[in-house]
Simulated assay, not measured.
Amino acid sequence: MTKHIKIDGRDIGDGYAPYIIAEMSANHNGNLNVAMRIIEEAKRAGADAVKIQTYRPDTITLKSDLPDFQITDGLWAGRTLYDLYEWAHTPWEWHAPLFEYARKLGITIFSSPFDHTAVDLLEALNAPAYKIASFEAIDLPLIKYVASTGKPMIISTGMADAEEIEEAIDAAHEGGCKQLAILHCVSGYPAPAQDYNLNTIPDMIRRFGLVTGLSDHTLDNTTAIASVVLGASIIEKHFTLDRNGGGPDDSFSLEPAELVALCRDSKTAWSAMGKVDYGRKSSEMGNVKFRRSLYFAQDINVGETITAANLKSVRPGFGLPPKFLPQLIGQRVTERVNAGTPATWEVVTKLPSTEK
């Protein structure tokens, strides 16, 4: 079982805070300056990485108006696949300045390649990791080619069944990938929370034995935060400067304040998971005063017998627990006891052998 992987020096997996990926996708809307600002805002929000996508329309589809290539419903209805990817792609000449700028700011940047030439471009830029998009999870030759780089790989599993996920994992390992993670994903844009079936995440962890995370296409952070409680080590969310920007993916992306909240709240959820611990917590220590315990309500002289009238269960909690009231009644005190004194075993004539 792979307990953790490492991307650009950052450990990811069991025992580490969730790794947050801000997916730029097409949210630059064809403007390099906007792309730079997205990187800035991702860094400012506290994301661990910003991710882009590396393709051209001719490397991902055919220029065709035939019915198979027409998009008839959803966000992009009325376009052909070629038109969509012409609109949405990140120009390859932007890649070097984007990588340079992200590194200058101190945020990790990597990409999803969609063919071998994209991998070659990213290798020339020394990409620290690769992401396989959900729709490419069945492109086993591409996975093997990415694996041959020796870099860490994250595979998103939207639309893939268990057998297809297994095949993708096998292809990655056969290609030489030593650091592999998978993401539970629903390939709807946006996707309703009820489609996510987050209980799949712990099953994936058990079934595949890999670092596992979530690629989240819901409209808020609730699903992503919940996934952390179920073992997600990576969270990927689309990120934009303005959800109303009119770009291909803007409408289902987080805005800067929401990414700040995701980075903060996912780490809070992870921290709250902690370990199995029934002991008293540090934040509770001062509140012993508000717990009940046994206190003497009257003065008692040496040798006198403790009665129900002079011993009471009250706050604070510095005396013996109330469960010992029956054992104390009838005992004689060995020293003078003043009212307001906590009851202890040391002031009675006989210590119970099994109840202390």
Rank of each mutant, 00 (worst) to 15 (best):
P57Y: 07
D161K: 02
S156I: 03
V302I: 14
N244P: 03
P57A: 10
V186P: 00
I300G: 06
S283A: 09
I138Y: 08
R206P: 08
A118S: 12
W94S: 07
F69T: 09
F318A: 10
L66D: 15
M273F: 08
I20P: 00
G274W: 04
E284S: 14
T157V: 03
I138C: 10
H4M: 08
S112D: 06
I205W: 05
N244F: 03
Y55E: 09
I155M: 01
F318D: 13
I234F: 03
I182Y: 02
M153K: 01
L241K: 04
I306F: 04
A172E: 05
K144R: 15
V348D: 05
S233H: 13
Q298H: 14
V211A: 06
F135C: 11
D48T: 13
T72A: 01
Q298I: 03
N287T: 13
L180R: 00
R243G: 06
G330P: 11
A129P: 12
H184S: 07
L81M: 10
N199A: 12
K312G: 08
D249N: 06
D68K: 15
A88W: 06
E236Y: 03
L122N: 11
A309R: 10
G176I: 03
T149W: 04
I201V: 05
L84T: 02
E346I: 07
T157N: 08
S251H: 11
G340L: 00
K43H: 09
M273Y: 09
P141K: 10
G150Y: 08
D195S: 15
K151A: 05
L125I: 10
I201W: 04
G231W: 00
R315P: 02
P141S: 05
G78Q: 01
R336K: 14
I165Q: 05
S293R: 13
R264E: 05
D65Y: 15
R37D: 06
A45V: 13
S187W: 03
N221F: 01
G188W: 01
I205T: 08
P141E: 00
I21V: 15
G340N: 02
L183P: 04
D249H: 02
G231T: 01
E258A: 06
R103W: 09
G176C: 02
P91T: 03
F318H: 15
